[in-house]
Structure formats: structure tokens, C-alpha cells
Write a protein that binds this DNA or RNA. Sequence first.
DNA 1: TTAGATGCAAATAGTTTGCATTTGT
DNA 2: ACAAATGCAAACTATTTGCATCTAA
Lengths: 151, 151
Amino acid sequence: MDRHLSLSPRAQRLREAGYKLTSARLTVLHVIETSGGHVTSSEVLERVTALDDSIGRASVFRALDLFTRLSILRPTYIGTSATPTYVLMPDGHHHHMICISCNRVIEFEDCELDELAAELETRLKVHITGHLLEFYGLCDDCYNQPRPSKL
Amino acid sequence: MDRHLSLSPRAQRLREAGYKLTSARLTVLHVIETSGGHVTSSEVLERVTALDDSIGRASVFRALDLFTRLSILRPTYIGTSATPTYVLMPDGHHHHMICISCNRVIEFEDCELDELAAELETRLKVHITGHLLEFYGLCDDCYNQPRPSKL
DNA sequence: TTAGATGCAAATAGTTTGCATTTGT
DNA sequence: ACAAATGCAAACTATTTGCATCTAA
């Protein structure tokens, strides 16, 4: 890898944590960063292969795992339970609302959890580095739609 | 099914939603309710089979899906990415802290998200029925442990 | 009675492994 | 130079499917 030109902040974080900046990892990172915040593992696999088919399946999964451990990503379930959707955790956190009918994901920024986080750190004696907040319900369209099936 | 004796509130909810109270569903429900709030799909499968090996795999997965759609459960990732862990959503919500080193899960009750939920309902024009809040970080033990590997 | 659920077993899909080889640093 | 990471392909695990049969309401 010699494209030292445009090291994204996340790539730098990788290096600082002592991991090698390999082609596989950088490609996975690139795919994730250009995926609007949500990608399933299969989508990542597909897009990585499309970009460079010499990158193996296993390395993609290994990268996803690594990024999860580094709190760069977080897997979550949207819709089917077969494949996780990975969401980017820009500053260690992510927040969205999932429509349980059409599976649309609506992101939002604000959450006032710093205080709660601080309180939990003392109360539970833990060291918090990030969080994910998900709301579930119906989006406006689905709410107004005559329900096709019971739910 | 004729054990109308002890219909758990969740079983009643099932019936009210128009679903049949079948042996498969009630068994899965029972397993979940006696699993301390966290079970992987494989654990559910295993325990259901142990209780009644005439219940098929497929029905277990179908039940897990149904309960998820009804916001009785919510799949999440803890540790490995291969199998989801299902958490019970007692009143439509659940909160916990996951240690990213030892995967211990520490639950906590309070969260002040009602206000935020209400605000989002008007701002995003959605109808919220539940939420999941997860914090990530290190538990005290892991924090004090000499780190075995870089993280 | 009958739509809704089921169990089965086979098909899919998704993920992980061991190991020889390659590659960042 | 050399530990770390990779690609491969096979093994493994998890989930879904189609359909004939069964069952709760």
C-alpha cells in the first residue's frame, strides 16, 4: 500500500492502534465510508470484490470484526436476522429510528446521553467509549398505509 | 394447546394481535422468559428442543421473527457476529452496557428518553413503540487487567 | 371448518478455519 | 527481517424454503 496521500482519520486511528494499513482493510474502510452509514456484510463483500477481486472473503470479515472492536462500526439488525447491518459510529455513537414495517432507517443526531454515560461510569464502575441508540416504530408512510398484515 | 392456566402477559399480547397460541410459540416464549433477558438463537433452539423435540427448527426461527416484529424481542450483537443475541424488551425498551473485551452485559434500568422520543415523533413524523440503548466500553475488571492484546 | 401454523428435510446463505504465502513497517 | 495479515477453499454454522399435514379458534 503506497497511497499515503489520503489517509482518512479512521485509517490513521487504525495505524495508531498498531494495525497495518493493508489493502484489504483500506478497501473495506473505503466501502463503508462511502455507503451512507449503513451496509450489510453482504453489501460490503460485494462492493469490495467489485473494487478488487483479489481480496478474499475472510479478510473482509476480519476487517469488519476489527473495526467493530475499535468502535468504528457497530453491527445491528435491520429487517432480516440473517445478515447484520453495520453502522458507522462517527464519534463513538450512532442514533437512528427503524421503521419496523418497511425497515427504513432514519438517522438523527442529537441525544443527551453524556450525562447518563457519566453517571453510569461511576455507578456501574465501567469505562464507556461509545453507544448506539435505536428507536423502533412506524414511519409516517407506514402509519398512514392501510395495514396490509397484522402487526 | 390447552394450558390456558398461566397465560403470560406476552402470550396474551400475541393472542390479541390475532396470532394463534401454538405449542411452538409458547415454548419459545417460555424459554426466552426464563433466560434472564439474553439468549442467542442457538441457545433458544437448544433449549426448545430439549423441552420438546417435536418442535422444528423453522418454527423457532419463525417465532423469534414474529416476537421481534411485535417488539417483544430485539436481536443485537454481542461478541461474535455469527449469531444474534435476543434481548427481551419488557416495556418496549431495553438498556445495557456491553464490555467490548469480555462481552459481559450489564443491564440498567433508567434512561431518560421519553422526552427525546416525543420530540422525535413530531420532528421526524414517526410513531415510536420502543427503543434499545447500548453503551460500549470496558467493565472494571477488563479495565484493570493488563491488556493482553492491543485494542 | 378453515385459515393460519407447523415439521420436515433439503437448499441457501453467511461465517470461520488452517495454513502456506505475502506484505507493511 | 519478520510479525502481522492475507487469500484460498473447504468446513461449519445459521437460516430459510416449499409443501403436505395439523391445529387453535
